[in-house]
């Protein structure tokens, strides 16, 4: 037992010090007006930060649009998990594993979120976007897309983030599919089940852990998407790309509302963590 602890402790102490301890140490600051990291004067303000979401107009004006954009993004990004990840995994499963194609699908994951954001700008900026110019040349579209418009950001961003994580989600679903005992699939074929029936009655129920895994990762990941937004100008020029993560960052590092920023982050993410833990438990129950 002592031996176990000797091996566990080095990493565990770093983990606790950098993940758990900050969360606990932050709690007292949530009740203060701390403005920046080396604020010389910190005053207690009671529950003001917690209630700001419901009472403070200026906070609402920042928070609510960001929340709306974030929810739209989370929803659309979640659909790309299936459009890209699940579809590609099912296809790969039916025609057999293709290493070359896997390599290409996984390639965007080697690219930073920042670079993916700049790729979006490079492809879909209104006047200079390569994809815009190409599609207009081919006569596919009449009007160019505009990455800096509300609609442009809302639709192009999830598309590219989905594209980036396609390989990752495909791997999750594919490993879920490969774990299905082949007897059950053969039995359903012999019994004359159509492909559609096989999907819903055989594949999906047995892939439940994979679905939950992909959901957890996508949920947490999309709520904290940041790098792509910076590339799209969220910190300065493009208000349409201001999602919640950008708001928390700005409050902490740019506009001197650190205490408020931390409180809002806590209020936003605590329910999310509970959902995440519930999903994890469900996944483990299904796996063993």
């Amino acid at each position: 037992m002592l031996r176990d602890w000797a091996f566990i402790l080095p990493q565990l102490s770093i983990f606790v010090a950098l993940t758990i301890v900050p969360l606990i140490l932050a709690i007292p600051y949530l009740f203060t007006d701390i403005a920046q990291f080396n604020d010389p004067q910190i005053n207690g303000v009671g529950l003001r930060n917690f209630l700001a979401l419901f009472t403070d107009k200026s906070v609402q004006a920042d928070y609510l649009p960001a929340l709306r954009r974030t929810l739209v993004f989370v929803f659309l990004n979640y659909t790309t998990v299936y459009i890209f990840g699940l579809t590609l995994a099912l296809m790969m499963y039916e025609v057999g594993f293709r290493g070359g194609f896997f390599t290409i699908v996984y390639l965007p994951l080697m690219v930073s979120g920042l670079a993916v954001g700049y790729m979006a700008v490079m492809l879909f900026a209104r006047e200079t976007g390569t994809a815009n110019l190409l599609l207009m040349e081919l006569g596919v579209i009449k009007e160019p897309f505009n990455i800096y418009s509300a609609k442009g950001t809302a639709f192009i961003l999830p598309l590219l983030v989905g594209w980036r994580y396609a390989g990752y989600n495909m791997a999750i679903f594919l490993s879920g599919l490969l774990a299905i005992p082949s007897e059950t699939i053969e039995a359903s074929i012999v019994d004359g089940a159509s492909y559609w029936q096989r999907l819903w009655r055989v594949y999906f129920p047995q892939m439940m852990p994979a679905f939950i895994m992909a959901t957890t990762m996508c949920l947490i990941g999309s709520f904290t998407v940041f790098d792509e937004l910076v590339a799209m100008g969220a910190l300065y020029v493009n208000p349409e790309a201001k999602l919640l993560s950008v708001l928390f960052f700005t409050y902490g590092f740019q506009v001197e509302r650190l205490g408020m920023g931390m409180t809002l982050a806590m209020e936003t993410f605590l329910p999310l963590i509970l959902v995440g833990i519930a999903l994890q438990r469900l996944q483990r129950r299904l796996q063993y």
């Binding site: 932050a26 904290t224 940041f226 902490g252 963590i273």
Partner: peptide
């Protein structure tokens, strides 16, 4: 399940 953005500031 702990979002990186939550612990960034503290």
């Amino acid at each position: 399940v702990i979002p990186g953005m939550l612990i960034l500031l503290p």
